[in-house]
């Protein structure tokens, strides 16, 4: 905690306002938010960068392409000219604003442009999967915790079964199965190779991770006086859930947001690195690391750059997560005050 004011006060401010004020005054949240905004802005800049700066299509192979550097036309993939003249190396980083700032990959594509486009996909999947997880998990956790009895038992056992599988193992298994055939269930249809597929898979496998603590919280809330009073007063279940339960659960869900985005992003990168996440010619930071694996000796930047972006983004999300947790968790504030 970095706030200079007592974290616990008896003012008439609502808990939400107190939390927001605490968050705004926390330097970690500023640093993390700035880092995150930089990354998001860069990735949103991708189409502009590709058309105005790199002037290449980052999704088309240009193995036999050429580029003019310092007035000289050079091959994007260059045949070795030394020794036995075997091997072909993609052009290295120019470190100049323009085409191939970070060099080319094995397909002759601009790494910098792909990095930005890849970031768009990684973040899109990260945020979308996290949103899916949180919505489903909140729904499931509240229904299980509030209903109790057999509904709670059934939902809890299903969550236990899903959580019994290691997250990555389950993600890999689902990806391998759905990658070639896609997913079709009732009106829900996801094509093989679609970006929605990793969103769906990652969003699903993390549901128990969020739903179980929310269920526990709802179980505790059900026994609180204000909920009992509402039940005694004859309020409808939906009214109790939306007016009494959910407002008390939302802070926990908010704490989960940065953490889940970070976890989803890392899982997506891992799946894409294993060729079972984002599919070519689309890119994500995971696929770019995979592309760079075969160039580690000659063009390490291809694998390093997306790795650094992943680390940078994960650190910013985790810092933000810590700040949000401290702001929304009264017990933490109490711990900080005394």
């Amino acid at each position: 905690m970095t706030t200079h004011e007592p974290a616990f006060n008896l003012s008439s401010e609502s808990p939400g306002k107190i939390a927001l004020r605490t968050l705004v005054r926390d330097r970690r949240s500023w640093v993390a938010s700035t880092m995150l905004v930089i990354v998001v802005a860069l990735t949103l800049f991708a189409p502009l960068y590709a058309s105005l700066v790199s002037k290449t299509d980052p999704f088309v192979s240009t193995i036999n392409g050429t580029v003019v550097l310092d007035g000289v036309e050079v091959q994007v993939l260059q045949q070795s000219t030394e020794g036995l003249k075997i091997g072909v190396n993609p052009i290295g980083p120019t470190w100049k604003i323009g085409p191939y700032f970070l060099g080319a990959d094995n397909q002759g594509r601009d790494v910098a442009a792909r990095l930005l486009y890849g970031g768009t996909n990684t973040l899109l999947i990260g945020f979308s999967a996290a949103a899916l997880t949180l919505i489903v998990a909140t729904l499931v956790g509240v229904i299980a915790g509030y209903s109790g009895k057999i509904i709670d038992s059934v939902i809890s056992r299903i969550l236990d079964v899903i959580w019994a599988f290691p997250v990555y193992l389950l993600s890999i298994s689902l990806s391998v199965v759905l990658l070639t055939s896609g997913f079709k269930w009732g009106p829900l249809s996801l094509e093989a190779g679609s970006l929605y597929l990793p969103i769906f898979i990652i969003g699903l496998v993390y549901v128990p991770y969020v739903a179980r603590p929310i269920r526990g919280q709802v179980l505790a809330l059900r026994e609180r006086e204000f909920v009992k009073a509402a039940i005694g007063g004859g309020a409808k279940n939906s009214t109790i859930i939306f007016r009494e339960i959910l407002p008390n659960v939302i802070p926990s869900v908010l704490v989960f947001i940065p953490l889940m985005v970070s976890l989803a992003m890392l899982t997506e990168s891992a799946l894409s690195f294993l060729s079972i996440g984002v599919q070519a010619p689309d890119a994500s930071w995971g696929t770019i690391i995979k592309d760079g694996l075969g160039l580690l000796y000659t063009r390490p930047i291809v694998a390093l750059a997306p790795g650094l972006f992943i680390a940078f983004t994960a650190v910013s999300l985790n810092l933000l997560g810590d700040a949000v947790r401290d702001a929304l968790d009264p017990k933490a504030r109490l711990r900080g005050a005394f």
């Binding site: 075997i86 091997g87 190396n89 094995n106 580690l296 000796y297 000659t298």
Partner: peptide, 19 residues
């Protein structure tokens, strides 16, 4: 031979390569 090692070997150890 992995693609990223071909140039290195072809340059450093040409006498050990047969094509």
């Amino acid at each position: 031979i992995p693609a990223d090692r071909l140039s290195e070997i072809g340059t450093e150890l040409p006498n050990q390569i047969k094509v």
